[in-house]
Simulated assay, not measured.
Amino acid sequence: MTGGCQCGRIRYRAEVDSDDAYLCHCRMCQRATGGVSIAFRSMKRADLQWDREPDRYRSSPIAERGFCSACGTPLTFEFLEGSDHLDLTVGSFDAPYRFKPTHHFSPETWHEDWLDTRGLPATRVDENPSTRDRWIKAVGKLPD
């Protein structure tokens, strides 16, 4: 599988052997992404090839995070030592829809109201005139 950052500066190829992924709810991930959780795919470092290495930020005494310094896309979570695995953000894959969450990590800090939002009203991009019209004016089409 392939993936990368929003602007395309950082790209990767990954050998993926399953559809398993997980949601991390820890405060470090919440702060690093600005979200209530983040979806990760854990994998062996040896199964990942970067076309260009991401920038890295030491986000805690035990880990660093790969990201693109040009567009800000979060890409990885990596322990500083003692692991031959790392986590890639599910959203950075070109085809993220195949992944399925198999577990939660750090439920002690999850935001319970955000776990199941299926009952909330939903609006498609093409149904929102303000957003739709801006996309059409800027690039002539809606985003993929």
Rank of each mutant, 00 (worst) to 15 (best):
M1T: 01
M1N: 03
C5L: 05
C7R: 00
R9I: 15
I10G: 00
R11M: 03
R11D: 09
A14K: 01
A14M: 05
A14P: 05
E15G: 02
V16D: 07
S18W: 00
S18F: 00
D19G: 07
D19Y: 01
D19M: 01
D19C: 06
D20Q: 11
D20L: 05
D20M: 08
A21N: 03
L23D: 12
R27W: 04
C29E: 04
Q30Y: 05
Q30I: 02
R31N: 11
R31A: 12
R31Y: 07
T33I: 03
T33S: 14
G34F: 04
G35M: 11
G35D: 11
G35K: 02
V36K: 01
S37Y: 14
S37N: 14
I38W: 12
A39P: 04
M43L: 15
K44Y: 02
R45P: 00
A46L: 01
A46Q: 02
D47F: 00
D47N: 13
Q49H: 11
W50F: 14
R52W: 10
R52Y: 08
E53L: 13
P54V: 06
P54W: 03
D55C: 06
R56M: 13
R58K: 11
R58F: 15
S59E: 05
S59M: 04
S60D: 10
P61L: 06
P61G: 06
I62Y: 15
I62M: 15
E64F: 14
E64T: 03
E64K: 02
R65K: 10
R65H: 12
G66S: 06
F67M: 09
A70L: 15
C71H: 06
C71S: 07
T73P: 09
P74S: 13
L75R: 07
L75V: 11
T76G: 11
F77N: 08
E78K: 01
E78W: 02
F79L: 15
E81C: 01
G82I: 00
D84N: 08
D84Q: 10
D84P: 01
H85R: 13
D87N: 13
D87I: 00
L88F: 05
L88E: 13
L88C: 10
L88W: 03
T89W: 04
T89M: 13
V90D: 15
F93I: 07
D94K: 01
D94G: 07
D94H: 03
A95M: 07
Y97V: 11
K100F: 08
K100A: 14
P101Y: 08
T102N: 13
T102V: 09
F105I: 08
S106I: 00
S106C: 15
T109L: 09
W110E: 14
E112Q: 13
D113P: 01
D113C: 04
D113M: 08
D113Q: 12
W114F: 10
W114R: 11
L115T: 08
D116W: 03
R118Y: 00
R118H: 09
R118F: 03
R118P: 00
G119S: 09
G119E: 04
G119A: 05
L120I: 03
P121Y: 11
T123W: 15
R124S: 09
R124A: 10
R124K: 14
V125A: 05
V125T: 12
V125H: 06
D126F: 12
D126A: 06
E127V: 07
N128A: 09
T131C: 07
T131K: 12
T131R: 15
D133N: 12
I136M: 14
V139E: 08
V139S: 08
V139Q: 12
K141F: 01
P143S: 02
P143I: 05
P143Y: 02
D144R: 05
